[in-house]
Design a protein around this nucleic acid. Structure first.
Ligand code: FES
Ligand code: FES
Lengths: 146, 146
DNA sequence: ATATACTCTACTATGTTAATAGAGTTTATA
DNA sequence: TATAAACTCTATTAACATAGTAGAGTATAT
């Protein structure tokens, strides 16, 4: 698994929305400043997250974004898989290409599966609800950084 | 962690040498055929592995490559880290760039560390000695594939 | 009306990856 | 000693992915 800037920003964006869950809407501009991301780049990412059903938006004046689901129902794994794609260390079979002559005999296959499972085990068991609480202390100081 | 073709070939190359450990030398040409890699690409990779101290070579006629160390003293992690670089899911600090305003407050930091440790735990605990035994059955049939 | 904020598509600069190419060096052996 | 076999080294390249940038368009509260 390799997290790109895109994925990194996406995670921070969802966390930012989790921290404002139930509150007022969050604008791209405000969010970009807090998570230190280029506005136009963040724009694209938020649109993606919307297509993925993670967030919703309201247009026009007083518009902004909000989380579609309660923060406890969204995991880090959900976002990473959606934005950065497969978390497998190697794509043994993609399209018509196969990395090994015989995938079934491949002695490395189990290793990559083990890595995959170990990774999943971490990222699929952390929700943004949990992360929001962790970030909470700094947030209550009214100047949290992500 | 993302395994590139380079890393994939390197692992197969080391396994191939592990399967011939103690035997005669292995030529690039022969190895390339067995592991299904482009000869000139494999050439570069073997030279890298040599610089990394994983393998040795003999030049001239009847030349070839051999493992520097017993297969049980080399892990998959050793090769992956050397050829494909850091196995971390994200480089939080590289050069002067820092991905988060405050790395110490970052709530994602622990997640990436957990992924790192889980991954290490898998790849650092598999030696080429173990892999060679697994591949052994097919090898003894004189037509093993990697 | 108009300012504010989301929406959509296209473009670009940079870097990485996966090779390919070719000239050079070493060594066994006929 | 000529030669073939095999490693050594450097340069180049095509394709792709990443990390943005740019700009025109749409919706909506006031
Ligand atoms: S089948 Fe994927 S590395 Fe062998
Ligand atoms: S410090 Fe690395 S993601 Fe925050």
């Amino acid at each position: 698994m390799k997290i790109t800037f895109r994925g990194d920003y996406a995670l921070k964006a969802v966390l930012d929305l989790a921290l404002h869950y139930g509150d007022e809407l969050v604008t791209i501009h405000d969010m970009a400043q807090r998570i230190d991301a280029p506005v136009k780049f963040l724009e694209q990412i938020l649109l993606d997250l919307k297509k993925g059903g993670f967030i919703e938006s309201r247009r026009g004046k007083v518009g902004g974004f909000l989380l579609s689901k309660p923060p406890y129902n969204v995991t880090v794994g959900d976002v990473v898989r959606f934005i950065d794609g497969s978390i497998e260390p190697i794509a043994c079979v993609k399209d018509k290409y196969v990395s090994c002559k015989d995938v079934y005999k491949c002695v490395f296959r189990k290793i990559w599966q083990d890595v995959y499972e170990a990774t999943s085990n971490v990222i699929d068991n952390v929700t943004f609800g949990q992360l929001a609480i962790k970030a909470g202390a700094a947030e209550h100081a009214l100047e949290y950084s992500i």
